[in-house]
Amino acid sequence: MIDTVNPIIAPENLIYAKSEVLLDNIMHYCPGCSHGVVNKLIAEVIEDMGIQQTTIGIAPVGCAVFAYNYLDIDWQEASHGRAPAVATGVKRLLPDTFVFSYQGDGDLAAIGTAETIHACNRGENIVMVFVNNGIYGMTGGQMAPTTLPGMQSSTCPFGREASRDGHPLKITELLAQLPGTSYVTRQAVHTAASVRKTKKALRLAFENQKLNKGTSVIEVVATCSSGWKMTPVQANKWMEENMFAYYPLGDMKNE
């Protein structure tokens, strides 16, 4: 009833709406999941750049396995960790397309470490989107390569101990060292301001691909409220207080 009498709700006043590159499928992600925001931002960048017809996404194994149900572009679903190799095959054979991999921390920084590092080291002309929430979401909250020291998960129920479980892997810092990468940044999507910054970073990464500048890596420090057993709002707070200290935001490389 209220909507019908609100004169502001008129087409000429619309300033923000769902991207046309997003399909109508309801996302399978949990309430408050950062994946939804990152999926949306990629869709918005693709729409803004007018590259929907020439973009090919490589979906991972993990929570984003069904990312291809949300963006209305061509997709390939890779096996766990192999998205950078699949992206390499696609981009080498179709150099005029835009190719991005979309991967979580287990996919990119554990099982697929070799594929990640070597794609970056060859300077594959692709965008790698890395969503780091410090946990395996899809399989039910197990320890990830990026799980923080002391952080609990179902496979380190008493907290991660470096002496037993190893240290959280700052793979993005590592990738920034490789001459093949041109743009390496760490962003977040917990506030409106950070969302806008991440969108800018994604835009720059896709623009870099147009200029054949090599690999762009966009890490997004993210929440997993289900895996962390918090509300989405609590998870954002916890991330700010704990994750950002270990994974500081900002550009590591921009050449």
Binding site: I8, E12, L14, Y29, G36, K40, V189, V195
Partner: peptide
Amino acid sequence: APELCIGCANCGAVCPDSCIAVYRAK
């Protein structure tokens, strides 16, 4: 509280499910 909305679109930006449309009066 519709009278308080300033049309900043922050809600839309952070929405993971893209279910928010924002309007701002010219």
